[in-house]
Design a protein around this nucleic acid. Sequence first.
DNA 1: GTGTTAGTTCATAACATAGCGAACTGATTT
DNA 2: AAATCAGTTCGCTATGTTATGAACTAACAC
Lengths: 163, 163
Amino acid sequence: MATTNEKKQLIEEIGLGIEERLSISPLAGRIYALLILSSYDGLTFEEIREYMKASKSSISVNINVLTQLGYLTYHTKPGDRKRYFKITKYYQIQSLELYLQALKKEMVIVQKINSYNSEHYPEKFSAEESLGEISQDYLIKFQSLIKDTIQKITELRKNDHSH
Amino acid sequence: MATTNEKKQLIEEIGLGIEERLSISPLAGRIYALLILSSYDGLTFEEIREYMKASKSSISVNINVLTQLGYLTYHTKPGDRKRYFKITKYYQIQSLELYLQALKKEMVIVQKINSYNSEHYPEKFSAEESLGEISQDYLIKFQSLIKDTIQKITELRKNDHSH
DNA sequence: GTGTTAGTTCATAACATAGCGAACTGATTT
DNA sequence: AAATCAGTTCGCTATGTTATGAACTAACAC
């Protein structure tokens, strides 16, 4: 596993984004990024450790966090004590599901703002009523776009597995 | 300005979301939330301070951060030294623009992952090629959905201002 | 020119978090 | 039973962030 400079940089970049989106530690983000870019067999604890040049304890803690959050799984090989880690889901589905969650929160907030304003500033609110509708409309369209895409990807995975 | 319990709770809730999305301090998030829910005239420094029950220095720093980031503006009244603060943009547009930014980053990352994989794991990648296409397709659709919605809202605001 | 208003700036306290090394555990070899 | 392997757990340090009080400033009022 030659650590190319390209890979290092890419892990840094992807890791940073993941760290923010999943609200996990920088190291956890980089581990997740490494596994996105790594082979299908999965990497061992030691391989991850080598790559990250971090302590055993940090690797242990962060792998466990990622596993508990459901982003990683591991499998073992007969007669081999090591665990092989890889990402649970396609990176893309993971992202979409996060958007879906954020969206639900957003919808609740928008509704609350609308109902607060309609109660407390009825004149102001009625002037903006269609604005509230547009937002609502947008959120619903977005939601169905995500759901469609998740379904497409899921179907693709099924076909992929069955051949 | 009677501080109803409903308003307090709502500010807490909206503020928390904003804080995370804009990566600003909790107080800045709550100030922004307060201004979302407050009247069109804008609130003074002292009104905000009273509402938040925070120190002058904290209010000052956080108002300035929000102003510098372009989320707040202030206007003055003749013969009155106070500044009246209100949000620059509709909360909804703000949200959408943030999504747009996040999306651009996302598109860059997805492209980099795809090109990395197509180079380093061509067999694996070709099996998933259509998956990469779906992601790309999704991102583009999402982008145009956001842009449409921003445009609709912007038009609505123009009409709203001009009557 | 003294006081007041409307904030700003600065040093600091309080708190949270990440990653580290060292000691430990539990299973497997030798 | 001693050693090794594959990790885990714990206490601690380093670092970053938020909000604070106290001192300061700039404009206006008397």
